[in-house]
Every structure is written in structure tokens, then in C-alpha cells.
């Protein structure tokens, strides 16, 4: 177990290091870092002061070590637009993105699993076929296009829900959350559904395949032969066994939801960190871009690590095969 943990932890560090190198090369080697990291409106004295502070006059390897050293201390530069540390600004936006991601995750599981089980129990029925067709559309159509259709139907044509923004928020432990107010909830529905659709399709397919398989197994036949109600067979016997792969996927997909939120937040003008990234790209606020990328990479790597470790605790086969391989 310890061998596995150490190896897995090493892989995560490697991933973060590789991304740091990529970002560093992108900023420092391809472009001129003076242009990228220093505000174009700065005067000569400011430019020289920043060059000295960031060590841009030093050799490249020394600059890289300095970049890593500063990053480890949470210093990824100051935003040009806001004039404050970039990490601080992103962390302020983090709760909005996390709220969106969690609500979307709950939606995708809460709707995806029942639909998948239904399609798996009756694969040839009209309901089963239309669920599958819907799920194919769900993950082959671009996310932003689905979001626009949602806006067109529910905000423009029907006028039921707002097209963008976050609505009224409540302060909980220093974080602004929308889902506790009616107005905030109304603003949350469309973006959350939009972000959930892709994962929902994935979960539907996975649950359907697993349900079909489980339905043919002897223990399910036996449970039916015992005369248990089909409700009980599905809810207790089948569901319990198909949840293992579903839980893994959910864990792994949480990380990618943070990345996919970039698109949803832009479509719905949701003030999270993804929207911040796109705004920063348009405003050429490069320290903020660098900080966002490093922070997101860190979040995704951490989530993947936690999921893998939890999974290896639950399923001994994983860590054994990893140690051997």
C-alpha cells in the first residue's frame, strides 16, 4: 500500500512539474517575458524594477527555479487589470465555479443513474432507445451550443429563467453562494444543466451497460426467483453492484468539470474562474492566465490523486496490479 501511495504521489508531482514546464516555456521561451509579464502601460523605472524582481535578467534555468520557488509560495504575479495578486483574485472566484460544478455533478448523477438503469432494464423499448439517442446527442454536440439552445428556449422564447449572471447570493463562511436564494437558484438552473448534460450522457451509457450485464447475472436471477419485488431487485441488488464504476467516473470527472466550466461560464456570464480566464485572455492579463492554469492543474491533479487513492483502498486489485507493473 505504501509503495503504491508513494508511486502515485510521485506521478502527481510529475504531472504538475510537466505542466509548470509547459507554462514556463510558453511564457518565457516563446514570447518575450518582458512583454508578457509586465504591464504595457508601465514606465521605464517600473519595467526595470519588475525585471529585477522577477529575475528576468538572469539565465533561463535560474528563472525557472525562481518561477517554481515563487509558485510554491503562492506568488504567481500581480494582475495587470486588478493590480492585486493573481492567485487572490482567482480564489475569490473559486466558490462560484465550485458551486456550479457540484450542482452539475449532483444533477448528472441524480438524473443520469435512474435513466441509465431504465435504459438498461428495457434496452429495446421506446424509452430505452430515446434515452440512448439523447445521450449520444448529449456528448457529441458541443457544450456551448447546448447552452445557447437552453438560453434560446428557456430565456428568450419562454422567458422562464434568466439568461445569465449569478443573481442574489448569500454569504456563507466568507463564500458567496447562490443556491440558497430563490433568485440565485433561478440563475443557477440553466448553467448547471448545461454543465451536467455531458457527464449525464456519460453516466447514462455507463449505467446502462452495467445494468444490462448485471441483469443477466445469477444473483439477480436468484433474487427474482426468490420472489422479491422488482423494485427491490433493482434498488438493492443491481444498483449496489453498478455503483462502483459509476463512483469512479464521478470522481475523475469532477476535475474535468472545472475545465468544462470555462465554456459554460462564458455562455451564461457566470462570474466564476473560467469566465475570469477568458476575460483575462481577451485583456491580455497574462499573470492571471498563468496563475489560473497552474491552479487548475493543481486542482485536477489533486482530485485525481484523491480518487485513485480512495479507489485503491476500496478495491485491492488496483494497488496490487500497479505494484507489479
Amino acid at each position: 500500500m505504501i509503495v503504491y501511495l508513494v508511486r502515485r504521489f510521485g506521478q502527481s508531482l510529475l504531472a504538475i512539474a510537466a505542466m509548470a514546464v509547459l507554462v514556463f516555456v510558453g511564457v518565457y521561451a516563446i514570447g518575450n517575458p518582458v512583454d508578457i509579464l509586465i504591464n504595457p502601460e508601465a514606465n521605464q523605472a517600473e519595467i526595470e524594477a519588475t525585471v529585477a524582481r522577477l529575475g528576468l535578467d538572469k539565465p533561463l534555468w535560474e528563472q525557472f527555479l525562481l518561477f517554481v520557488w515563487n509558485a510554491l509560495h503562492g506568488d504567481l504575479g500581480d494582475s495587470f487589470v486588478y493590480g492585486r495578486p493573481a492567485v487572490e483574485i482567482i480564489l475569490e472566484r473559486l466558490p462560484a465555479t465550485m458551486e456550479l460544478a457540484f450542482v452539475a455533478l449532483i444533477l448528472s448523477v441524480g438524473i443520469g443513474v435512474p435513466l441509465g438503469v431504465l435504459a438498461g432494464l428495457k434496452p429495446d423499448s421506446i424509452a430505452g432507445r430515446s434515452i440512448m439517442a439523447g445521450s449520444i446527442l448529449g456528448f457529441s454536440l458541443p457544450n456551448f451550443w447546448q447552452g445557447m439552445l437552453l438560453i434560446l428556449v428557456f430565456a428568450v422564447l419562454l422567458g422562464w429563467l434568466p439568461a445569465g449572471g449569478r443573481g442574489e447570493t448569500v454569504d456563507v463562511l466568507g463564500m458567496q453562494l447562490s443556491f440558497l436564494t430563490l433568485d440565485g437558484l433561478r440563475h443557477l438552473i440553466l448553467p448547471a444543466v448545461n454543465l451536467a448534460l455531458f457527464k449525464m450522457s456519460l453516466i447514462i451509457r455507463l449505467t446502462r451497460a452495467n445494468t444490462r450485464e448485471a441483469n443477466l447475472q445469477d444473483y439477480v436471477k436468484f433474487a427474482r426467483a426468490k420472489g422479491l419485488s422488482s423494485r427491490r431487485v433493482v434498488l438493492v441488488h443491481i444498483l449496489k453492484n453498478i455503483m462502483i464504476p459509476v463512483v469512479t467516473i464521478i470522481g475523475l470527472e469532477l476535475g474535468s468539470m472545472v475545465a468544462f466550466a470555462i465554456v459554460t461560464e462564458t455562455v451564461f456570464a457566470w462570474p466564476g474562474m473560467g469566465k475570469l480566464l477568458i476575460d483575462s485572455i481577451n485583456l491580455l492579463d497574462r499573470p492571471l492566465i498563468v496563475a489560473y492554469l497552474m491552479l487548475t492543474v493543481f486542482i485536477i491533479v489533486t482530485i485525481n490523486l484523491v480518487v485513485d487513492v480512495l479507489y485503491s483502498v476500496l478495491d485491492p486489485r488496483v494497488r496490487l496490479s500497479e505494484v507489479k507493473g
Partner: peptide, 19 residues
């Protein structure tokens, strides 16, 4: 493996934000 552990859209955005 390293590359596939990150969402494709994130990697593409990193590259295009920098290039």
C-alpha cells in the same frame, strides 16, 4: 497517460492562451 489525465479543452486553452 500524463496528457490524457487532463481534459483536452484545458490543454488546448493553455496552448492558445500562450500562443
Amino acid at each position: 497517460d500524463l496528457q490524457l489525465s487532463f481534459p483536452a479543452i484545458l490543454i488546448a486553452l493553455i496552448l492558445l492562451a500562450l500562443l
